[in-house]
Amino acid sequence: MNVDLSVRLGRLTLNNPVLVASGTFGYVREMTRFLDVSRLGGVIPKTVTAQPRAGNPTPRTVETASGLLNAIGLDNDGIDHFLQHHLPYLRTLGTPIIANIAGENEDQFVSMAAQLAAETGLAAVELNVSCPNVSHGLDMGIDPTAVERLVGRVREACPYPIIAKLTPNVTDIVTIARAAASGGADAVSLVNTFRGMAIDWRKRRPILANDVGGLSGPAIKPLALRMVWEVARALPKCPIIGIGGIWTADDAMEFLVAGASAIQVGTATFADPGASARLLDSLPEKIASLGAGSVREIVGTLRSNRG
């Protein structure tokens, strides 16, 4: 089956649209037992922060109906460790590396982006302006003015393509996506987790040590699809990376026709470590079944029932 899987997201070109979401793929080395990561369109290692962070106490995750609620709290060893220890390994994998960073404020984002700018071998930088589990950083992702200024400053500091990963915990996702695009984002990743909670009523306690967390997994796919579709309709020139409950090639096709140019497999990896590779295997046949010869031909081809 000769289907062209390559996609373009602003200045970023990928061999195929299948990425894996930050925080669900470790630092990639954890995954090499289960799939050939070089086949993927790209990989996004776990979020790094300016300083090491211990993360939240346990329990950090709890399973809910077809979903996973997490409050890991950006447990990581900091960007210096990432650059010294993980990046040299990631460069050897033969797949595009999209570093994901989170700052506690704008200046931290910018200085981390400048550190990445001095490194070779990255394909792009994804800005996590949307982690629901840390006390700082979240507020930025819900303020369009702050998002636009942040993306603009990061672009000045870093020559790599910039992706803004947005929170769905806003009244109007289009406003935030538009701000990211105005700031110069090459693409927006839609969406990070939905704030939620799980409760043990017998103990009258939340189950997570952090009380609340971010919901991911198949449960959120309809919510994410709606947001991708809204942004795609309002901002047809803004490349979108769809995230939210994607497990199979059918899930991926739904996001692509809704308007995403690429997708990220996230929580499915925990339940099915080889999910992203199998999704990629099945994708050409799904695309061909629509009579298309490339991913690009099907992106955003959804037609409304309302005319």
């Binding site: 925080g23 669900t24 329990p59 950090r60 447990d75 470590p273």
Partner: peptide, 16 residues
């Protein structure tokens, strides 16, 4: 026997 989500080191749930 900590609570785990993935079992292979990717999710950081089972830390102690």
């Amino acid at each position: 026997e900590n609570h785990m989500a993935c079992g292979f080191g990717a999710c950081f749930s089972c830390v102690t």
